[in-house]
Computed example of a mutant assay.
Amino acid sequence: MAGISLSRARQMIRKTFDAGKEARMNPLSAVVLDEGGNIIAFERQDGASPGRFQIAHGKAHGAVMLGMPGSAQMARAEAQAYFMAAANGAFGGALVPVPGGILLKDSKGRTLGALGVTGDTSDNDAVAGKAGVEAAGLVPEV
């Protein structure tokens, strides 16, 4: 697999939204980035606040740029706040180090990009995103 197609990115987002709806989550927003941090697709459910793009992007951007999911970034921020502050500064303040930033891997463990989900609690965002990634045939690192 060379990367994530637009079709697969949209499927991942759609399935993420389906999981959120089934669990009665607040309206979600989701972005898929490639392995270089470039945007492949973004969608916002009806009723999601307009600032959710930046949050979803920050979750995904941190995951792909640091090679660690949002949950690991949060743990790192709690253990070494100075590191995450420095990393966030290096990336122009674009990191949101909380759950909902999910690394996208193929069956061989190669990182293909990241999914960022926001709109409900960060833990719920990660649950919905994990379902979307799995439904799209990829391996999530949450």
Rank of each mutant, 00 (worst) to 15 (best):
M74H: 09
S71K: 15
G47R: 01
F83R: 11
S49F: 11
Q45R: 06
D46A: 12
A79P: 00
A72V: 14
G70S: 05
A56M: 02
A86F: 05
G89C: 04
A81V: 09
F83I: 15
A87N: 07
D46P: 03
R76E: 14
G67N: 05
A75M: 12
A90Q: 08
G58R: 04
G51V: 13
A77T: 13
A79H: 06
I55V: 14
F42I: 01
M65N: 13
R44I: 06
A79D: 12
N88H: 10
G93I: 09
A90M: 11
F42D: 00
E43C: 03
A87M: 15
F42C: 00
P69R: 04
F91Q: 08
G58F: 03
G58K: 04
F42S: 01
P69M: 08
G89T: 09
G62D: 02
S71W: 13
S71M: 11
D46V: 10
P69T: 07
Y82A: 15
F42N: 01
I55G: 02
P50F: 06
F83K: 10
R52W: 01
R44K: 10
I55S: 01
M84W: 05
F83C: 03
G51Q: 12
R52F: 09
G92V: 00
G92D: 01
G47H: 00
M84E: 10
L66P: 02
A79V: 02
R52D: 05
A75S: 13
S49L: 12
R76W: 14
R44F: 07
R52M: 13
M68H: 05
D46F: 05
M68A: 13
A77W: 12
A48H: 08
Q45C: 02
A60H: 07
F53S: 07
S71R: 15
G89Y: 10
M84A: 02
Q80I: 09
M65I: 08
G58I: 04
I55T: 11
N88C: 08
P50H: 05
F91Y: 15
